[in-house]
């Protein structure tokens, strides 16, 4: 078990100031650790990895890592990533987005990236809220919960990221919480190994902007909530039907093979060149 933390330190930028800017207990840091371990486990070099991040607290984690890092605009990280991957398919492109980032302002890019099967791993750090701007509702804020812009409770329905990704045609869709970090490591590793668009949703607590207003006394209570309510798919299947709805399923929801867009492009080029010669 040992040497986990030293390993992470090895991948951090040594000329950045630590501790990082995130709040105490913010789950985004755990995702960062998980991502670093996964990259390490696959033996990827720092040079071949490009972390493309959106805007939000989630987007701020990229700058701390010693990869090629691109901090983009709010909601548009996937568009930058698409250009990078098409321009150089040899790069391992990983996109880090918040829930507001990926699904509110960036919802259109999200479904299209999934549909076109561009070879990037999309990590959505879902804390059910806009953390960075001070706790306004996002498209994943659960119905009835309180935020700065839904002071009387969220009236709108929220997105289920997994269902949305499935419907948009993603060939790999997985979810974990930051408490279930071994699972998180595993699904990120699998995502990074696969061609095409891979979606990993990480449920991560934001006590500062969400938990406090929604009956969680401390950030630890939010982790305890994950422990109680998140259930791996196989365990969920064993529960009586009536009890399933209240639980949050975690695990791998879709895993299929398909050519990525950049692979298809390579095939197109060789077809055209054969035709020309």
């Amino acid at each position: 078990m040992a040497e986990v933390t030293q390993l992470i330190h090895h991948y951090l930028r040594h000329n950045k100031k630590f501790p990082h800017v995130l709040c105490p207990g913010c789950g985004h840091g755990i995702v960062l650790g998980s991502l670093v371990r996964s990259i390490h486990q696959l033996g990827l070099t720092k040079d071949e990895v490009v972390l493309v991040a959106g805007i939000g607290c989630s987007g701020r984690i990229a700058v701390y890592t010693d990869f090629n890092t691109v901090h983009t605009t709010h909601g548009r990280a996937l568009t930058f990533a698409t250009g990078i991957k098409m321009a150089n398919p040899g790069l391992k492109v990983i996109v880090i987005m918040g829930d507001g980032d990926a699904l509110s302002i960036g919802g259109n890019h999200f479904i299209h990236a999934a549909r076109r099967n561009i070879g990037v791993t999309a990590l959505i750090l879902n804390n059910n809220i806009y953390g960075m701007t001070g706790g306004q509702s996002s498209s994943t804020t659960p119905q009835d919960s309180v935020s700065m812009t839904t002071p009387f409770g969220q009236m709108e329905k929220s997105f289920d990221i997994v269902e949305l990704a499935k419907a948009a045609g993603a060939h790999y869709v997985a979810r974990s919480t930051v408490l279930h970090v071994k699972l998180l490591d595993r699904i990120i590793v699998t995502a990074l190994e696969r061609p095409g668009f891979n979606l990993v949703e990480a449920l991560t607590p934001c006590h500062t902007q969400f938990g406090r207003k929604n009956k969680f006394k401390t950030v630890v209570d939010m982790y305890k909530w994950y422990k109680k309510n998140a259930l791996p798919l196989d365990a969920l299947a064993k529960l009586p039907e009536a009890q399933r709805n209240a639980r949050v399923p975690i695990g791998i929801f879709v895993q299929e093979e398909a050519h990525s867009l950049e692979d298809r492009y390579v095939m197109l080029r060789s077809r055209l060149q054969e035709g020309a010669s």
């Binding site: 501790p19 990082h20 985004h28 840091g29």
Partner: peptide, 11 residues
């Protein structure tokens, strides 16, 4: 080690 969000604990 796996859960410290700030990489502050070493075993």
């Amino acid at each position: 080690e796996y859960h410290c969000p700030d990489f502050a604990i070493v075993v």
